[in-house]
Design a binder for these strands. Structure first.
Lengths: 232, 232
DNA sequence: TGAATTACGTGTAAAAATAACACTAATATT
DNA sequence: AATATTAGTGTTATTTTTACACGTAATTCA
């Protein structure tokens, strides 16, 4: 029971985290889903989730749960929205805080994932998910689309070094429509947060494409100067 | 204790709602704050809040709490963000879901508010608030600014019938900088969601300004046609 | 070895959106 | 009748966005 009178008489609740985990592979935007090994809804797919513990902040809980599944400690992770309909979980009253994560599939711990029954699904071939998880996914997609328009985000889905054609394919996958090559380059380079390496990637063409890196310092500098990238 | 084995062993938490309540009055954007009548932080100001009950969805809880304070049942209310640092509340571990509301000050129940110690503060003259409430407010401001750029939102802060000069003052208060009258009118009218009445408001000029109403049907129609106002 | 293939990289012009800007109109007050 | 006050209106310049086509580099295959 609560030590403090002001809080007495109020009910407590299970609070869970559910994570929408985005990856990018084979030119497709993908989600990491879990095949449930227990009832209810055994063998159906769900988002990766877990409960918030007593001495754990909600962001910490989200990172912990993500690391359990992917082995990754440093990940782009952002809170999305909280879902709290009384009957949203058929078993008990659970309030769930949804987060979305962007990870580089190459860094993901395949073995660890398999232990949890994790499978990557292309975003346009998702199975039905339990509870309100499909709703969460669709909200996460909207958020990702919007953010990538205003902010140079999404590099987290690619390897550290990437080519502009790769980056363009990523943006096309996120927005689900093709972009003009020249306009895309112009715009992304005008943001001045990419630095070109004198190194080429030849895996997808004979000529090879120059590799770039996201320049976090420059980005932080521009942010701190205020005149850039306001958001949420 | 939980009836279902899958949930056992996990801790439950207090879950609260905190509301950032916006109003617009005397050409200024304002917030409704509460002077606390109990410890801790007695006599300091805070957002209006309350706990989520066992058989109550979180949106329902937010509406209930708002009605308690303002007497208003139909209000623009939207979830903002959940705050869950372990020590954010100095008394106990409380996870708080922040909502923001837009209300028409004229409809607000003054007497009910006073019973709760509620006071309107201009947004640029806020007192320090308890816990992380200032952070919540600043997030709500950013959200409101962004939303009003893309969506024709904010009419909830005005009376049902309003003039374009009034609406412009509201937008200027939200964005905290002046707007060009002609450009503002052009843009807002081009959205085609306002209908002009053949009635004038003469309270602020001799000539009088035409009254307009937000045309929800037209708005919903445009939304349903897809080609408008994508968001979040 | 040179011809063919394949994806990479580049500039300009048209169209659309945004920003800047100043006067007349209506009416109450004196 | 003159004055004072806020409402209402159009055009031009600037910026941003969109549309669009060909030469280049390097490999592979005759």
């Amino acid at each position: 029971m609560a030590k403090h009178s002001h809080y007495q008489g109020f009910e407590k609740h299970y609070v869970a985290i559910d994570s929408i985990i985005f990856g990018f592979d084979e030119g497709k935007l993908k989600l990491l889903l879990i095949k449930r090994k227990f009832e209810p809804h055994k063998d159906n797919y769900s988002l990766m989730g877990g409960f918030v513990r007593e001495n754990e902040g909600i962001d910490d809980a989200a990172y912990r749960i993500l690391e359990d599944l992917t082995g990754l400690k440093t990940i782009y992770l952002e809170q999305l929205q909280t879902y709290g309909e009384v009957k949203r979980d058929s078993e008990a009253r659970v309030i769930s805080i949804a987060y979305y994560a962007l990870i580089n599939i190459a860094d993901y711990d395949e073995e660890l994932g398999q232990k949890h029954g994790a499978v990557w699904f292309p975003i346009d071939e998702l199975p039905p998910l339990i509870f309100d998880h499909n709703e969460m996914v669709s909200k996460a997609m909207k958020r990702l689309k919007r953010k990538t328009v205003i902010e140079p985000i999404g590099f987290e889905l690619l390897p550290e070094k990437f080519t502009l054609p790769q980056l363009q394919k990523l943006y096309e996958a996120i927005h689900q429509h093709p972009l003009d090559k020249r306009n895309f380059r112009k715009k992304i380079l005008s943001m001045k947060v990419l630095s070109m390496l004198d190194e080429k990637d030849k895996s997808s063409s004979k000529r090879g494409a120059f590799l770039y890196m996201f320049d976090k310092e420059k980005y932080d500098y521009l942010i701190s100067n205020g005149d850039y990238f306001e958001l949420v």
